[in-house]
Design a protein around this nucleic acid. Structure first.
Lengths: 199, 199
DNA sequence: AAACTTACCTACTTATCAGTAAGTTCAGAA
DNA sequence: TTCTGAACTTACTGATAAGTAGGTAAGTTT
């Protein structure tokens, strides 16, 4: 028989969902157990039943991001998605963050608060960054080899600019308005040589 | 006679200096009056003497960033700096943040914590963003007109990508190491058509 | 049906936070 | 020499944080 999950309810997942939204909305140090508890209609101690500490909650959260990204890319692989399609899917991630309440990249939050989060979360953050950036580098490499992308500079350099720009623009959208996002994505695509259509 | 500053000591400025470093290191919600007080060898209440509230301290801090940027650009104007020179000076700002203890852009911090900072600070953040981005847009516009820059897309679009990429890469440097910064700046320059030398 | 586990809750502790009220020190003006 | 105000300190408050001890109802296993 399957241990956990199937038994009883899914409060644990609901806690993670609430924590995830709060993390991307306010940051790790600006949300409390009380925020989550109130939202779920449970008491503070219920969260401690599922997660021994806030550090535990935080690291579990990042591991879930990592797993989700792995699942996502694996699905794209199964579907034999090409580089252009993969790139579009990559852009769709921050786009959904923006739409769903002006959230920002989890990595952006964690990096901004990096010196004020527990070490286990710092380690998980490093892994998440590496995995995402390595994957995108692979996509850009394939795309250039196949001639569907056309850009200057090395794969690593270009990947950094794309990742950094997307992370940055989500944050800037909070002070400058959400409309700057699509504008920036358009420019990024242009500079990847992937946009042949009009401006 | 000059009011304030000349009289007595400069604790107020020292408080702002400490708060500024803490902001860019840990974020607004992750530093306390105690951090500052301990660092300066004064008591908690001494900070409250100079700043009525943490909100007051925060807004003063952002206003100081704004003033500093205005002074900086005004100096460049007086020196008749060209677009390339101005761009180099703009890159020098995040470069100094990185060198001085892996700090990140103040705006990046404020945007990441945007939904967890007081409204007066949100307003000041908007102004800081607008002023900096408008200035850079002017530089890119001049540079393109003068033929020293060569890039695709509109001025606004390009400015956003440059600003977002710089803000993002400072944050990513925390998990990926400081060496990625110069690499990214090199790529940004390349894509501004300002780098004629070898890769 | 007894024994055990899950999934909580109530009630608490300890620590830290921003903020305040009232008193102290001391330089310089009157 | 007294007085005034700037620049603090001491000693506190109330709020909120994460975390814990112990209890309980309902479901599961044996």
């Amino acid at each position: 028989m399957d241990v956990e999950d199937t038994k009883y309810n899914n409060t644990k997942e609901l806690i993670l969902d609430a924590a995830e939204a709060l993390l991307q909305d306010r940051g790790f140090n600006a949300f409390s157990y009380h925020h989550i508890a109130q939202q779920l209609g449970v008491k503070n101690a219920a969260i401690h039943y599922h997660f021994t500490s806030k550090t535990d909650l935080g690291t579990t959260l990042i591991r879930r991001f990592r797993q989700r990204f792995r699942d996502y890319t694996r699905t794209l692989e199964r579907e034999n998605a090409g580089p252009v399609s993969k790139l579009e899917c990559y852009f769709a991630i921050p786009a959904s963050y923006l739409q769903n309440g002006r959230k920002i990249c989890p990595l952006g939050v964690l990096e901004a608060e990096f010196n004020a989060i527990p070490e286990p979360m710092q380690l998980e953050s490093r892994l998440l960054d590496k995995e995402m950036r390595d994957w995108l580098a692979g996509v850009l490499d394939d795309g250039r080899s196949q001639g569907v992308f056309n850009f200057e500079g090395s794969i690593v350099d270009k990947t950094l600019v794309v990742v950094a720009a997307l992370q940055g623009v989500l944050q800037i959208a909070r002070v400058a308005g959400p409309q700057i996002f699509s504008v920036t994505v358009r420019q990024i695509k242009r500079e990847l040589g992937v946009l042949e259509k009009a401006v």
